[in-house]
Design a protein around this nucleic acid. Sequence first.
DNA 1: TATGAATGAGTCTTCATTCAT
DNA 2: TATGAATGAAGACTCATTCAT
Lengths: 199, 199, 199, 199
Amino acid sequence: MGERGRPKGASGEESRALLLEIAAREFAQNGYHETKISSIVKGASLSQPTFYLYFKNKEAIFEELEHLFRMRIIEYTKQSRLQPMLESTKVKTRITYNLKELLVFLDKNPDLTRIGFYLSTKADEIKAHMVEQIRGNLDFEVNAGYFRKDVDTLMVAECLIGIIERLTFTQLLTKLKEPEEIANDIVDLLLEGMLSKES
Amino acid sequence: MGERGRPKGASGEESRALLLEIAAREFAQNGYHETKISSIVKGASLSQPTFYLYFKNKEAIFEELEHLFRMRIIEYTKQSRLQPMLESTKVKTRITYNLKELLVFLDKNPDLTRIGFYLSTKADEIKAHMVEQIRGNLDFEVNAGYFRKDVDTLMVAECLIGIIERLTFTQLLTKLKEPEEIANDIVDLLLEGMLSKES
Amino acid sequence: MGERGRPKGASGEESRALLLEIAAREFAQNGYHETKISSIVKGASLSQPTFYLYFKNKEAIFEELEHLFRMRIIEYTKQSRLQPMLESTKVKTRITYNLKELLVFLDKNPDLTRIGFYLSTKADEIKAHMVEQIRGNLDFEVNAGYFRKDVDTLMVAECLIGIIERLTFTQLLTKLKEPEEIANDIVDLLLEGMLSKES
Amino acid sequence: MGERGRPKGASGEESRALLLEIAAREFAQNGYHETKISSIVKGASLSQPTFYLYFKNKEAIFEELEHLFRMRIIEYTKQSRLQPMLESTKVKTRITYNLKELLVFLDKNPDLTRIGFYLSTKADEIKAHMVEQIRGNLDFEVNAGYFRKDVDTLMVAECLIGIIERLTFTQLLTKLKEPEEIANDIVDLLLEGMLSKES
DNA sequence: TATGAATGAGTCTTCATTCAT
DNA sequence: TATGAATGAAGACTCATTCAT
């Protein structure tokens, strides 16, 4: 029967996955309320009742997308703790690399990112969680002597999240800059500051 | 009509202002869609038709709030350009002061802030506008030799906006920190960087 | 504006009462599920949203009708207790009269009767309540010597309710018999029994 | 196809019977509309399409249950006509026995009883049919001199059905009383009446 | 200026029912 | 005989918005 029109007997998992994908796109594009079940199923070439075969309701599919983002983002922040005993000269490189990896993930999943960072009512929770992780890392790094002892790690972590969020939406997802460039810029700014060195 | 027969309560302007105020609170608390005209007018002890006496529709009152925020925020960024010929030693103080003033405004208008920074579909425009202003200031300041010549002023401006937004929601509006503290923290971080000075 | 079409400004209470009336008819005729909000409001020449102005939902209006029936029926059973010291010869007359009054009420409110006796999920409760009342009356009457000491008053009360229900639907609401005739028949049967007297 | 490849479980007849049984239970418990095909088939561990292998639709299976009840109940009322030339002293015994038999049947088939007596739109027809039968019996019995000549046999038959219905639901199916007790109570009440004998 | 009363338009959701295998 | 997958049809409910006074 080839590819024409996905016959009735498509695998349930496929339909479900398709719905999730389309839903992510629709939510990201139009927000939660402007996204109608009817347009999700139309996008998936399915009927409305089919939607309810796989998801309890609109909220449920949205929550599943939130959850998906959350699980994946948590992995990234977990991985990003610096190894102890890292050579001082490698610190900057390592941090930049970790940050770049995170940005690559966000870049590859723009719809999920918009949902998890912006649309979700749990966006605050998610970011707060990231802040906690980063702050832990920073505390460790300060202790290890990589950074000034007098920095308020919580504030830095908050700033970093604010920066990541902003640059993700204005530079990354708009394709104005590559993950690596952005990572470099951020790390340079936060580590070195803006003042002229001779000053 | 003088003072004689205002049959039911307030003057027109008062009712209008009240509706704006309540609406701001409701929008800030519950978002655009979750905010019902019915609850706005209930909050203002008025009837639904009265609402339409003062505003064309729900969108219109929201846009008016957006506009209000926008006008006021633009003033602040305009004022914040550093005066030429500033003594080098005063730069940091001056920047911090300007930032603090902005934060004080946001702090005093939490509902508008939430609307203009977060809920409004024009939030991006507003922030982009701020970025432009700040970037102009930074360019000037770099030229004046206050900062490193190699900083990407657009990126710094973007970062600053990201930081302001985040700290506004997590530290300022939650009353965890005072505007001044936050301004100090931000400026210190961005100017000095995190690295230990001896490094 | 005369009577044509009930203008928009009809009193709210009127609309509400009208909806209740039409709803009773629709429920009685078609049952709970077959009755659509749309047909109720059509019957009342109103729109669907108007329905929700006066009732929380379909269940709520049904419950209000149940309640109405219940309140009224309870009055009747309360009134029907025999006065103490009644002359023995008047007992039968008195009982018949009370029963007739109840039947007159049911006859005058056929829709409510169908709802409260048949459609309502609380029909059992309502009838159980009536049984209790009647049983109380019977106990009193047995004590007063009007009836055989060995009758099981609960059973008689149950039988009476069964009879009333059945005859209401088959004889009364179908207009085959008048309340008075039915009351006479019931009382005669229950008091005298079927056996030939000489036996 | 013999016994070889019945791929999934039971023979057709078995599945059909099972569906009927489960359906009766579900209808009796939850009513017609609240009973979903989905829960019937779930109860029978079958799939929805299988249901339509055996029944045209939801209405059809319900009607089949109605029919089943009707056929069986008619038998009982047919049998219950008193034999001519019965000794006068045995009349009461015989009537009681017949009534008891009917009640035993209802007691053994509570789901069908609830369907045929209460849920079915044909419940009225069924009961009307029973009334007719009983009335015929009563006419015969009156003629034979067993009962008062002045009783309205139709009314008595109606009363009896009302009583049977009520006591079935409140005493029999709730297991409060045995069929025999109930039969005795009914017959005693209807034959003897409530009045004290000396009166 | 103010409102009691009413509604058009639209969405979610459910369920009996059917294909294709 | 049996079912995984899918849907047509329909109803409840909500909300912004408008008459008529």
